[in-house]
Design a protein around this nucleic acid. Structure first.
Length: 360
DNA sequence: CTTCAAAGCTAAGTTACGTCA
DNA sequence: TGTGACGTAACTTAGCTTTGA
């Protein structure tokens, strides 16, 4: 079954404030085309196509992560839209894929204004960081005592495979097995050495990702030096991290859109049934059918909000307006166009404006 | 001012490795 | 011990932007 959702103007609208017209293929059998406007509620929490979110963000302002996040929240909150008239749908979840709690309280990134002591002291936060990677082996746990000494990489441990066990906490400066390929390995280029970043390294990268999901060369170098990694490793980690974030968000968006489709399908079905009932009333011999209220969609002329209201059916002399549901229904598909005019789905974000127009 | 090549960056897709059940 | 699933580091490719000649 194909469900065509046409919420407003099918013409791609000009992106505004980060919102863009989004065409999301839900799956092979259900395609949802959603004109996402600034205040259209049937939007994703991202406020933009997840496939474009990252690039949109960093290309527009690579270092304004926090600002964008705030804006997105503002855009989502307080929206009243056509879906909310009848469709109770939890807003899409904005994934927070970052660690819930800072693992490294000492976090002080080289580029941060708060450039305090960079003394790592991971031992004090080991418990907090433990939750990050439950799969770690005991050996890794032991090696996680790797301290973020933040020395220049390459200085710690000439032997990349050396593990320091049984050393006092203060003295333990362990380089994880192949935590950083030696320069020899790097230049030999025999086979790529797969390494697993230590818990502290991952946590620190996560924290830095939280501040900036992209890195400029300076940040990259600073992070690499702090974590005793190669800049290339930091770069790759950020690339993969962005990819993971996007993947997760896409999954969330997919689930949300799927639920929207299901809800709208039910709504469409209900409206069809209502339409049939109304037609049955019209053709009936009941002389009072005109006075029965019917649910229809009207638009507030002042704020252009669509509202579900009950109106009297016009007298028989008036041609019964063909319901929108019927107009837009396509054979083999269900289509719900809640907008008599494309622009009718442009709502204001303020609820207070939604007042019946004063009679002139 | 325009054109073009080089450099640098990213997303997207893929490969390969480490870990675990 | 072998194996498949899974997570992820590392790689490849293509597209875009910037920069300087």
């Amino acid at each position: 079954m194909e469900l065509g959702l046409s919420l407003g103007d099918a013409t791609p609208s000009k992106p505004s404030n980060g919102f863009i017209t989004t065409t999301t293929t839900v799956n092979t059998t259900a395609t949802t085309t959603v004109g996402v406007d600034k205040s259209l509620g049937f939007c994703m929490a991202l406020g933009m196509n997840p496939l474009d979110a990252t690039s949109h963000q960093h290309k527009e302002n690579p270092h304004a992560q926090d600002d964008h996040d705030d804006d997105d929240d503002d855009d989502v909150d307080g929206e009243e839209h056509v879906c909310s008239q009848r469709i109770s749908m939890n807003p899409p979840v904005q994934l927070d894929l970052l660690p819930s709690a800072p693992v490294l309280r000492h976090t002080s990134f080289p580029w941060s204004s708060d450039n305090g002591s960079s003394e790592g002291g991971s031992s004090g936060n080991a418990a907090a960081g433990r939750g990050l990677d439950a799969k770690r082996t005991p050996a890794e746990e032991a090696s996680s005592s790797f301290r973020l000494e933040f020395t220049s990489y390459g200085r710690i441990g000439g032997d990349s495979h050396k593990r320091g066990f049984g050393i006092g906490n203060d003295a333990v400066v362990v380089e994880r097995a192949s935590s950083r390929a030696s320069d020899e390995d790097e230049h030999n280029g025999m086979s790529r050495k797969k390494l697993r970043l230590s818990k502290e390294q991952s946590a620190y990268l996560e924290e830095s990702f939280k501040e900036h999901n992209t890195l400029n060369p300076k940040q990259k170098l600073a992070l690499a030096e702090q974590l005793n990694l190669r800049p290339r490793q930091v770069e790759v980690w950020f690339q993969n991290r962005r990819a993971r974030t996007k993947l997760k968000q896409t999954e969330v968006d997919f689930e949300y859109l799927k639920r929207c489709c299901e809800t709208l399908t039910d709504e469409n079905r209900r409206l069809h049934k209502e339409l049939q009932d109304l037609r049955a009333l019209k053709t009936s011999t009941n002389p009072f059918y005109m006075q029965l209220p019917a649910t229809t969609l009207t638009m507030c002329p002042s704020c252009e909000r669509v509202a579900t209201t009950s109106v009297a059916i016009p007298p028989p002399s008036t041609t019964l307006t063909k319901p929108l549901v019927e107009q837009n229904s396509v054979k083999g598909s269900t289509s719900l166009n809640l907008s008599p005019k494309p622009r009718s789905l442009i709502f204001g974000s303020s609820n207070s404006h939604h007042q019946p127009a004063a009679p002139s």
